[in-house]
């Protein structure tokens, strides 16, 4: 019983991480219908930039954990957002009219490019986040939860809420939904398509960076190739929840996280990811619209 409860907690924490990565995929996919493979790379880049911010601040004797965490999150989100802007400008915009295949390959190339650059800059060594939130996990009966785990869940919820509000309630959000329905018509109606699409990429990158920093804070170790698997799992979560759907990203993340942690009860761990892939294939083949349905626009 205690094990089951703990597994649910584990599933929620990792699910929130998947949800955050999924949010980045979903934003971009919802607007321009591109699986932005570079999202995994942006997530890794965010984790490394966040660590750099923490190290620089610590070198300047900033010691308050709250300040360090906020600075790492903000710094990583801004810098990675800028990187995502660059990615959109260089690797996506010129291919807007090209077949979808070109854009997919281009985003894959960006993923590998980011990985290679991080590897060169860090010498392939795994890097370690300092433990800013203290090591003592909270215990409640048989259940334990690390403070950073709670932080992940809260930030994921907060960012999801912010995105939902942004997409549904602001002028720019309305423009995004309009572009999702029909780019041409939205342009004719006076929406600055280029600007809004660029903004979508920037937001996707910033969300990925937030996930990267939180993973660094919670698990401690980051590696240059961390984005490959996490990117795939984040995408699975996005599809599971209904790609293009903002709350769906978080729902998909949580469902995937819970599924993964509950599977370990019955199946040897080495088959865990195979099950994830199988779920992904099954969902795509039999319910491609996911749990909450597809696309920002259809829910507007």
């Amino acid at each position: 019983m205690g094990t089951l409860a703990q597994q649910l907690v584990n599933g929620v924490v990792i699910g929130a991480v998947y949800g955050l990565i999924a949010l980045g995929y979903t934003m971009v996919y919802g607007i321009v219908r591109l699986i932005n493979f570079a999202q995994g790379g942006l997530y890794a880049a965010g984790a490394f930039i966040g660590l750099e911010v923490v190290e620089i601040l610590q070198a300047h004797r900033v010691e308050s954990p709250a300040l360090l965490i906020l600075a790492a999150l903000a710094g990583a989100m801004i810098a990675t957002g800028a990187l995502a802007f660059l990615v959109e400008r260089v690797a996506y915009r010129p291919l807007r009219r090209a077949p979808i295949l070109s854009a997919l390959v281009s985003s894959l190339a960006v993923l590998f490019l980011i990985e290679n650059v991080i590897q060169l800059l860090t010498g392939a060594q795994p890097q370690t986040y300092p433990s800013l939130l203290g090591l003592q996990p909270w215990t409640l009966g048989p259940i334990t939860l690390a403070p950073s785990g709670l932080l992940i869940v809260l930030v994921a919820l907060g960012l999801m809420g912010a995105m939902q509000w942004f997409v549904q309630r602001t002028r720019t959000g309305r423009a995004m939904r309009a572009i999702a329905v029909n780019q041409e018509v939205a342009g004719l109606m006076g929406v600055d398509v280029r600007r809004v699409v660029a903004l979508t990429f920037v937001m996707g990158g910033a969300l990925g960076a937030a996930a990267g920093v939180l993973v660094g804070l919670n698990y401690g170790t980051i590696t240059f190739n961390m984005g490959e698997l996490a990117g795939l799992e984040g995408f699975t979560a996005a599809v599971l929840g209904g790609i293009g759907n903002v709350p769906g990203a978080l729902v998909g993340g949580l469902v995937l996280g819970l599924l993964q942690s509950l599977i370990t009860i019955v199946l040897p761990n080495q088959w865990n990811e195979a099950v994830v892939f199988a779920v992904l294939i099954a969902v795509l083949a039999f319910r491609p619209r996911g749990i909450l349905g597809e696309r920002v626009a259809e829910r507007a």
């Binding site: 699986i35 795939l232 080495q270 199988a278 294939i281 795509l284």
Partner: peptide
């Protein structure tokens, strides 16, 4: 069952299929 789907979904599914085969070979 998979080829009737849209191109980008197909890409992801083949990726998943490759992953499963890789894991199976490993185990």
């Amino acid at each position: 069952p998979t080829l009737r789907l849209r191109g980008d979904y197909l890409a992801i599914m083949t990726l998943g299929f490759g992953g499963i085969v890789d894991i199976a070979a490993n185990n």
